[in-house]
Design a protein around this nucleic acid. Structure first.
Lengths: 133, 133
DNA sequence: CTACGAAGTAGAGCCGACTCTAGGTCAAGC
DNA sequence: GCTTGACCTAGAGTCGGCTCTACTTCGTAG
């Protein structure tokens, strides 16, 4: 147990759903907004802000943002004030891609739903016939 | 040029957007509903049905169905009548996953839109201040 | 004092879905 | 008769995002 401000890598893994491996990987890839502090024995000590940041990264990953682009964004945040319009550009671009993804997914969904309907009707009709006999 | 019923692999690639490599790969993985006919010199001859089937496979892939599961579905279709309820199960299961995917994606979208809004306001306020001076 | 569990590092391995290479066949055009 | 281009096969290579291995170091519990 670390102080209530400090979380071990295992605790962060629990809280985020990432594996400890993934957490070390993310750090190596530079997608933590602030350098992780080290405690006794060289162990990582995470803050609640780190967890919050990671949760946002998880959202970006889930929606298909590649790790290198998350790093670009993270770098901007790390550099501090003055580059907000660049951060905005990255987010808007990603927003656009997610929008397209949702449209595509909806098209797939429509086709699948159409086919499910057809098969459902057919299977129902077979069942009805069996009952009728 | 083959007869109007026969398409070369290159023509199918054009029509589906898949690469010729991908088409051969899909065939090897057994996700073509009917065996591709071979023309002179051992060349593949596709029909319009093959193209239609491929387009559906593309939808399934786009929505995240793994190749092995597409093969399971394809196998059922190839086996012919009598297994419609199994096909329905696969489709319904996939439909469920796509639905979840869409919900997740919407959550990501909400977060991104929220952040875009904040950054947009901020960037606008900076711009307004610059104009004001 | 020994064993355990959780952490550390560096780097290898894995998985899915293609993509590409090497080497060959064949028909049409110059 | 030679080149070109589209096709063939078998199998190797790539890429992204982890995941796992090997080995070490701690701190605590039995």
């Amino acid at each position: 147990m670390l102080g209530d401000m400090g979380l071990s890598i295992g605790q962060v893994a629990e809280r985020t759903g990432l594996s400890v491996h993934a957490l070390r990987y993310y750090e190596k890839e530079g997608i933590l907004a602030h350098q992780v502090h080290r405690g006794p024995g060289g162990r990582r000590v995470y803050t609640q802000q780190d967890v919050d940041w990671l949760r946002m990264c998880i959202m970006l990953r889930m929606s298909g943002m590649p790790v290198p682009e998350i790093r670009r964004y993270t770098d901007l945040v790390r550099q501090g004030d003055g580059n907000e319009s660049q951060r905005l550009d990255i987010l808007k671009e990603h927003q656009e891609r997610v929008q397209q993804q949702m449209v595509q997914l909806q098209e797939c969904m429509d086709l699948i739903t159409y086919k499910v309907g057809i098969y459902q009707d057919y299977v129902n009709s077979i069942a009805a016939r069996a009952v009728g006999q």
